[in-house]
């Protein structure tokens, strides 16, 4: 790693004002630190969000589940509130990376990074979540812009994510056997305003599959989506899987997600 300065503020406002032009916020560090170690990234200063208590925790109120940005994956996976409100979200968190990564990695860090193969973006978009920052609230669909790009401004940090509780939801992913990142992951949610299907891992950034949404809207069954094809042009193609293979996996994972939703 190149050298850098380090600050560990105890409040959100203090953190935002500590951040300079070539600085970065440090959440769980499970992506940022390896990136710095490989010298793929360089910062003047890391502003560590680890000591900010108000960014941690899970709350359920009425029709909404709220998760603080610095809540770790293991906390989400084991939360009784998550299991009762959106079990698919708990299961998703339980299958991110490995046990050690889940003990450090956070929901805020994951979504702010917007890795194209991360799990959480699919859940946020399918559930119609809202991302709250120190400045504003952004709908999940507007938040995830493109490959590793979000709507966050330079000195803006995610404070929490709120999820409307769906009627039912399911997530299925085909994990890369080495990294556990999603080669393709599909999150399906049946909500009061209709069915939403979000796909991660397949394209440069998470996207909705509207043909599947329409099909599930009239018949919420695995058979309804298993035959629906996704255009492979524009999908990712790399050493792990071709675009055509990813396209095929979307149909398979979508059907499994519907089955998981029950």
């Amino acid at each position: 790693m190149y050298s850098f300065d380090y600050e560990r503020p105890s409040g959100v406002n203090e953190a935002a004002s500590a951040l300079g032009e070539d600085d970065k916020f440090l959440a769980g560090g499970q992506t940022l630190l390896p990136t710095l170690k490989l010298r793929l990234s360089q910062v003047d200063k890391l502003v560590d969000l680890g000591a900010i208590g108000e960014l941690k925790g899970i709350a359920k109120s009425g029709s909404e589940l709220t998760i603080g940005a610095m809540t770790t994956h293991v906390t989400v996976a084991n939360s009784g509130d998550v299991k009762s409100a959106i079990p698919a979200l708990g299961s998703l968190a339980a299958h991110i990376g490995d046990a050690q990564v889940r003990n450090r990695g956070t929901i805020g860090g994951s979504i702010a990074n917007n890795d194209p193969a991360a799990d959480y973006p699919a859940a946020l978009v399918a559930l119609g979540a809202t991302v709250h920052t120190n400045k504003r609230s952004i709908s999940a669909e507007d938040f995830f812009v493109d490959l590793f790009e979000t709507a966050l401004e330079d000195d803006e940090l995610v404070t929490k994510v709120s999820f409307p509780i769906p009627e039912k939801a399911g997530y299925a992913k085909f994990p890369n056997p080495a990294s556990r990142f999603a080669l393709v992951g599909v999150f399906v949610a049946k909500t009061a305003s209709g069915v939403r299907v979000a796909v991660t891992g397949a394209g440069p950034s998470v996207f909705r599959q509207s043909d599947m949404e329409a099909a599930l809207g009239s018949n919420f069954a695995a058979d309804a989506v298993s035959g629906i094809k996704t255009d492979a042009s524009g999908l990712n193609s790399d050493i792990h899987a071709s675009a055509d293979y990813r396209s095929h996996l979307i149909s398979v994972m979508a059907a499994r997600a519907v089955t998981a939703a029950g």
Binding site: R8, L26, G29, L33, P34, D48, Q100, V101, N103, R104
Partner: peptide, 10 residues
């Protein structure tokens, strides 16, 4: 935790 992926200061 993986101590190669955490700063001493954290």
């Amino acid at each position: 935790v993986k101590s190669c992926t955490m700063l001493a200061l954290q």
